[in-house]
């Protein structure tokens, strides 16, 4: 619930997700960071690689854990004008997953392409 922040510069931000949800808090709190970043009109990218891919796996159900299932929030990102979501193909394959297993539209790119994309960023935030 924030008002837009006025800033002149537009930087390329990337949030790099390499950790799965629930086992640790990182995935949830990165998502909170991403939502806030939307208010600053920056060029925001989100990368899912390694176990970070599990953050956007379909069918999450945390009822038996008593934890909040925050996976539906990734689908809200579009409404925040955050639409540059990238998943690394090799990481999907290593885990026996495909694009159909993911709950948001993403762009699946190769490791080499991910490396190039990362190299274009001004600010990389990780957790």
């Amino acid at each position: 619930m924030e008002d837009d922040f006025e800033a002149g510069t537009v930087k390329k931000f990337m949030f790099v997700n390499r950790k799965p949800p629930y086992g640790t808090v990182y995935a949830l709190e990165v998502l909170e960071m991403v939502l806030i970043s939307a208010a600053f009109d920056q060029d925001v990218h989100i990368a899912f690689l390694d176990d970070g891919i599990y953050q956007i796996k379909k069918g999450q159900d945390t009822k038996d854990l008593g934890m909040k299932n925050f996976s539906p929030t990734y689908r809200a990102l579009e409404g925040y004008d955050i639409e540059k979501l990238f998943v690394e193909r090799e990481c999907l394959e290593e885990r026996g997953l495909s694009e159909d297993d993911l709950l948001v539209p993403v762009e699946v790119i190769s490791r080499a392409e991910m490396g190039k994309l990362m190299a274009e960023m001004d600010v990389v935030l990780t957790a």
């Binding site: 619930m1 924030e2 008002d3 837009d4 939502l35 939307a38 208010a39 909040k68 299932n69 925050f70 539906p72 929030t73 689908r75 809200a76 409404g79 925040y80």
Partner: peptide, 14 residues
């Protein structure tokens, strides 16, 4: 649907 309260800007747009 999304498990968050939307930012004002996002709410207005929606």
């Amino acid at each position: 649907e999304y498990q968050i309260a939307p930012a004002v800007r996002v709410l207005t747009k929606a």
